[in-house]
């Protein structure tokens, strides 16, 4: 960047007319090692802004102290189970029911001497087969209701967390034991 352009940018800057990009350009220019002496004052000013933005909050343990003050625990719940994707469970179950149904239809067809000439009888047999599939389907659906129980089970597992907390409390007993031993000595 030539000094004419810099002078122009500086006057724009001092009028409050530069864009953020132009201000970044100025900062980059004045951050260079070798710049004309007349820009020394700007070098110090822009250098200050570059440094000032890096200043950090003094207390590195602020986050924990903050939550302690609020009385809030931030322990991450690593033991928590990932919620089961119910949609996928349903889709897999439905496919299984369909496959079982199709299997029955094929079995019926394969049996020799099953060919029926009488249309009425054929209709009755087809109906019977379909009823069977639907019956099996319903049984399958009943089985699916246990998925709900399964979900409840998963929810129950959350109690393990409380159990863990209980265990933590129990750790104090070991401290107590140590003190008892100490007293014995």
């Amino acid at each position: 960047m030539n000094s004419q352009k810099i002078d122009l940018l500086i006057s724009k800057y001092e009028l409050g007319d530069t864009t953020l990009d132009e201000e970044r350009e100025l900062k980059a220019f004045f951050a260079q090692e070798e710049i004309p002496a007349k820009y020394r004052v700007y070098r110090e000013i822009f250098g200050f802004y570059d440094t000032a933005v890096q200043e950090e909050f003094p207390d590195p343990d602020f986050d924990n102290r903050f939550f302690d003050k609020l009385g809030v625990s931030t322990e991450s719940k690593k033991g928590q189970l990932i919620p089961f994707n119910r949609r996928i469970v349903w889709q897999v179950a439905a496919s299984l029911v369909l496959l079982v149904g199709l299997y029955f239809v094929f079995q019926l067809q394969k049996q020799p001497g099953n060919e029926i000439d009488d249309p009425k009888l054929a209709y009755a047999e087809t109906k019977k087969a379909l009823m069977m599939i639907s019956g099996n389907l319903n049984t399958g659906m009943k089985e699916l209701s246990s998925i709900k129980t399964f979900d409840e089970g998963v929810n129950e597992l959350k109690n393990i967390k409380s159990f863990n907390e209980g265990l933590k409390t129990m750790e104090k007993i070991s401290t107590f034991n140590r003190s008892t031993n100490f007293v014995k000595q």
Binding site: A52, V53, E55, E56, F57, P58, F62, D63, F66
Partner: peptide
């Protein structure tokens, strides 16, 4: 909470 630095400045 990561805003603490900016807020502090």
């Amino acid at each position: 909470l990561p805003m603490k630095h900016k807020l502090f400045r």
